[in-house]
């Protein structure tokens, strides 16, 4: 099984020796070196409490790393930017805004002309299959539709990098499966702006299905203990015996004795 393949290309997002400590608390993780390359989905997995969600927030600079540097396409990031958009685990939409207004929010303070803002917002809603629902409020939508709105809102800013913090965990399996396919389609078929995605998930099936590379974090403070490249052709099928080999490998690496593959 190939492990930890080094790419010669320039990473889209590069984390160099980053560490984070919550105020008046212990260090959450340290010496994290993680790169995400073009056309690549990187998954971060690890036991609960190892700071995976915190790591995503540090990558987005929503939390300032206590050590280390983050680079986006070679430029160091020092503050939050719409170019690294975070999709939350708990689906966050503004209840007083329609789907279209929710998406427009990410473009509110750009210098784009109003027509362009609306055009782009509508295009993103179309991309996630919600063109007809643009005037609906979140409470008139299902959880899956709301998460699509959140994804459209993140994409409207045309970010090169998308950070996904367990984005399907609150959805039923059918909706989650359809959204996973959509994320794949977005990353690999709409290359004009979105180049890479980093996914945090506890669902190992989801990880094997989506990721090109998996970073396993563990320990206190957490570090990247293992990196695994998933060489499976797309579309991936759970009936494929290789799919299960990767799954078993992940279970082994994570030390999950009771996890049923």
């Amino acid at each position: 099984m190939p492990k930890s393949a080094k790419a010669d290309r320039e990473p889209i997002l590069a984390c160099k020796d980053i560490a984070y400590t919550y105020p008046h608390s212990k260090e959450v993780f340290r010496d994290i070196n993680l790169n995400a390359y073009e056309d690549e989905i990187v998954a971060v997995v690890g036991p609960t409490g190892t700071g995976k969600s915190t790591l995503l927030r540090v990558m987005a600079h929503l939390l300032t790393p206590t050590r280390g540097h983050i680079y986006l396409e070679g430029t160091e990031i020092r503050e939050p930017t719409p170019n690294i958009s975070l999709i939350h685990q708990s689906i966050a939409t503004f209840p007083w805004m329609t789907a279209l207004e929710n998406v427009r929010l990410s473009l509110r303070d750009t210098k784009l002309p109003e027509e362009e803002v609306i055009k782009r917002s509508e295009k993103m809603l179309e991309l996630v299959g919600l063109k007809k629902d643009k005037d609906n409020y979140p409470k008139e939508m299902s959880g899956g539709m709301r998460q699509r709105v959140a994804i459209a809102r993140a994409l409207a800013a045309e970010p090169p990098v998308l950070l996904l913090d367990e984005p399907f965990v609150h959805l039923d399996e059918f909706t989650a499966q359809s959204l996973r396919q959509e994320v794949l389609r977005l990353v690999f078929k709409h290359r004009n702006f979105l180049k890479s995605a980093i996914l945090v998930s506890h669902n190992l099936h989801e990880v094997v299905q989506l990721a090109d590379r998996v970073c396993i974090v563990n320990g206190t403070p957490a570090t990247v203990v293992e990196e695994l490249k998933i060489n499976l052709p797309r579309p991936r099928s759970e009936r494929d015996s290789k799919f299960y080999e990767y799954l078993e490998l992940l279970v082994k690496e994570l030390g999950l004795k009771d996890y049923r593959v």
Partner: peptide, 27 residues
């Protein structure tokens, strides 16, 4: 106001006016 909303405001680099007008006051 949920932490996620604050993160979105920062993530999209919304101005103080936009934050107050579109999120804080309605929220």
């Amino acid at each position: 106001i949920p932490a996620e909303f604050w993160e979105l405001m920062r993530n999209y680099r919304l101005s103080t006016y936009t934050r107050i007008r579109y999120i804080i006051l309605p929220g």
